[in-house]
């Protein structure tokens, strides 16, 4: 899926090995809980409500794909009994037909959960869980990497995996630092177009995913969409073509089967430098839309391209 670059530097190879180690460790659940777990614990969710968990939970239901990834990455996977139908990672997550968009309170209650994790309070979810005395933690879409870190730590606290959570956050911090160092300081401003679907929805730097480009020192063409435009604007084809991005990141490889060939065949797109030079990166839609530990995978897919473009520019 990722493009192969024969001239990838030794530095990169090193980094890749490191990352593989990280993601393997992250995705395999550890059955044991931290010895230092003290319950009850009370945390303050991002929306300001305080959530108290009386005992270490062993029947967690996750209605958030990102939440599921975080739980498994911090070793709380064995405590998870059910995840919603979008939680397709890691592969050993107990995926069910539970829907996070149309939550069925009875079906959730049927798993007799002792903790529910979700990203949105849809359909009276919080109210319903409170009514049956099940603690529920809403961890909404992160706006910044720091939000993401604090969600991981918070999940560590409520599941009794504080230590693993702290370790994961520390690892992620150092990985990101490594990527930033890798790409160095661009001599020329590189431009990226991040595509969410084939009707040209994109993401500005105000979004979580948009900040990843800022971290790598790449400018995002969607940032020109100002005024009434939302954080996820639908860009006009004319604008994308005339902006002539150096890099196109396709986060619509799964939803819409897009790739370099389909992009090159769009009317007028053949002249874009990214298309001419083949700097069109396919990323997994899910990785690009979640704010969990796999954001490292995302950066790993993008960084080599940025580095290569910079070399060419230099």
């Amino acid at each position: 899926m990722r493009k192969h670059h024969p001239r990838a530097s030794a530095k990169l190879a090193c980094l890749a090995a490191l990352l593989v180690a990280l993601s393997c460790g992250g995705s395999s659940p550890t059955a044991s809980s931290s010895p230092a777990a003290h319950f009850p614990v009370t945390v303050t969710a991002p929306d300001g409500t305080s959530v108290t968990v009386e005992h270490q939970p062993h029947r967690i239901v996750s209605l958030s794909a990102t939440g599921t990834e975080m739980l498994f990455a911090i070793g709380a996977g064995a405590q998870v009994v059910a995840v919603d139908d979008t939680s397709n990672y890691p592969a050993n997550a107990p995926i069910t037909k539970l829907s996070a968009f149309q939550p069925n309170l009875e079906a959730i209650a049927g798993y007799t959960p002792d903790l529910v994790v979700a990203s949105d309070d849809i359909g009276g979810l919080v109210h319903g869980m409170q009514a049956i005395n099940v603690p529920i933690l809403i961890e909404p879409a992160a706006k910044t990497v720091d939000d993401s870190y604090s969600q991981i730590k918070q999940l560590g606290t409520v599941t009794g995996h504080q230590t693993e959570a702290d370790a994961l956050v520390a690892k992620m911090r150092s990985q990101i630092k490594a990527f930033v160092a890798l790409v160095g300081h661009p001599s020329r401003q590189l431009k990226v177009y991040h595509e969410l679907d084939n009707t040209y929805y994109s993401a500005t730097s105000a979004t979580f995913i948009g900040q990843m480009y800022a971290l790598l020192g790449v400018s995002n063409i969607a940032d020109s969409a100002t005024g009434g435009a939302p954080d996820y604007p639908q860009l006009s084809a004319e604008f994308i073509v005339s902006s002539n991005p150096d890099l196109i990141v396709l986060a619509d490889t799964k939803c819409c089967n897009q790739n370099l060939t389909t992009v090159a065949s769009r009317p007028g797109w053949g002249v874009i430098s990214a298309v001419k030079s083949g700097q069109v990166v396919n990323v997994d839609d899910d990785i690009a839309s979640r704010w969990g530990p796999r954001l490292i995978d995302f950066l790993q897919a993008i960084a080599p391209h940025v580095q290569q473009l910079e070399k060419q520019a230099a």
Binding site: L196, Q234, A237, R266, D285
Partner: peptide, 19 residues
């Protein structure tokens, strides 16, 4: 839900990609 935005965008109408 993965394709909800694309189908929604289609429903609202667009003359974007056809050429």
């Amino acid at each position: 839900p993965a394709s909800i935005r694309e189908s929604y965008s289609w429903i609202l109408g667009r003359l974007v990609t056809a050429g």
